[in-house]
Design a protein around this nucleic acid. Structure first.
Lengths: 229, 229
DNA sequence: AAATTGATTATTGTCAACAATCTGCGATCG
DNA sequence: CGATCGCAGATTGTTGACAATAATCAATTT
């Protein structure tokens, strides 16, 4: 579907160095929540877990720091970053602009096969909505937007967008986020896809930006609800 | 003017670890061109130059790799990245979107003092145009856009924008870039500032995006000229 | 003469040890 | 009784050494 050549394990260890491998591993640990938000990351422990020395771990952590997934305090170590509502808002500001760009480009460039792929994912999401599977919806939603930015055909854009998205996952209230209106969210997806099918670049851009705006509003709503109780 | 608290050297070494210091140092080396584009970066040599061991150097390089200033090949080392016209185009795609956002935000948020600062820089640039000081113009232009994104008041945006800008500096033809129309470029700056003064957010956004579009066109022109001879 | 092989050298990848710093806790003192 | 000081223990910061890999170049072979 996303037709990326998936390399074998052999190629992986041959072309990527240990720090690079460890980096994605730690990133997964953070994104899966096994390393809790704000938690102190112990170098020796990770080294033990991955069967390496601390050197590669430190290199990986430095890379993760650059991508803002962890922060580092001198002589105290690195901590999993937590982002505030304010910073999430900053990210959404950027994301809205990028989503508009993504919408335009996908409308211009996406193949009909790619559009079918998008429709399929939206259909899957419809199922999760029906059975109230929030977690499943969330995963598919991530995949949907990942495919979108991929189909926009700008690798640097993909990189920037994924970086921002990861940052958003560090938001304290993840999981709760789409608590309310994920049915309406998927409706928005369908509208965007219609614009893609019509090759209406301006409209697709407008709609995808609007979707980001709505997503931000849903985040605010969830944050307010969490702050209330 | 940019009213950032400039930390003393003492604070710097106390709060930042060696890898962090080395990182900005190497970044300067690259951005100043002392490490040529595409050149192989020798770890031992850098370690010697900075009077450290290779450990901190490697950590710094890993961070620079994450910010795409260098690329790394296993068992061959890291190289200063060079970007193609195609990738510069990708970056400009994003930059146009972000510049629009920046223009809007500055029109909404900038203080009159900040606007005066912008005008002052543009006036300085006018001088460099008169005396045909391309290098001086380039430096001031960088400063101008740096101030702009700063005044937009979104730290994450600042970060993303600077990252992209640095990437553009890796373009092969830097130096030649504004060879032709930097007089018209500064005219565009003035128009944007007028929109700021009028607090016309939409117009400021449109103009700053347009400025980025024009800048991209100038890059293409320079690239074509360089390819011709 | 061109290509291939093999040894030499330089460079990177990884590690384990040492030094510096911080943290937590108990003892001491006001 | 509260605060401060100082001492382990743990953790990070940095280093130098060793192993693995790639680049270089001369010798050999076809």
């Amino acid at each position: 579907m996303a037709q990326v050549a998936v390399p074998t394990v052999l190629q992986l260890v041959q072309s990527n160095s240990l720090p690079a491998l460890v980096q994605v591993e730690i990133e997964q640990l953070i994104l899966r929540g096994e390393l809790a938000i704000g938690q102190h990351v112990n170098e020796s422990e990770l080294a033990g877990r991955f069967g390496t020395s601390r050197g590669p771990i430190r290199e990986a952590l430095r890379a993760l720091e650059e991508s803002r997934l962890v922060r580092s305090e001198k002589n105290r170590g690195v901590f999993v970053r937590e982002i505030s509502v304010a910073e999430a808002d900053e990210i959404y500001d950027i994301r809205e602009a990028l989503d508009q760009l993504i919408g335009q480009r996908v409308a211009e460039r996406a193949t009909s096969e790619q559009l079918r792929g998008l429709k399929a994912v939206v259909a899957e999401m419809d199922v999760t909505v029906r059975v109230q599977d929030v977690k499943g919806y969330h995963a598919l939603n991530l995949k949907f937007h990942d495919m979108l930015v991929d189909f926009a055909g700008n690798s640097r854009l993909t990189e920037s967008y994924r970086l921002l998205t990861k940052g958003l996952l560090l938001f304290r209230l993840r999981g709760l986020q789409d608590g309310g209106g994920f049915a309406v969210s998927n409706t928005e997806h369908k509208a965007v896809i219609e614009a893609f099918a019509a090759r209406d670049s301006a409209k697709a851009g407008r709609l995808l930006r609007q979707h980001a705006v709505a997503s931000r509003a849903r985040m605010h709503k969830a944050a307010a609800a969490a702050a209330a109780q």
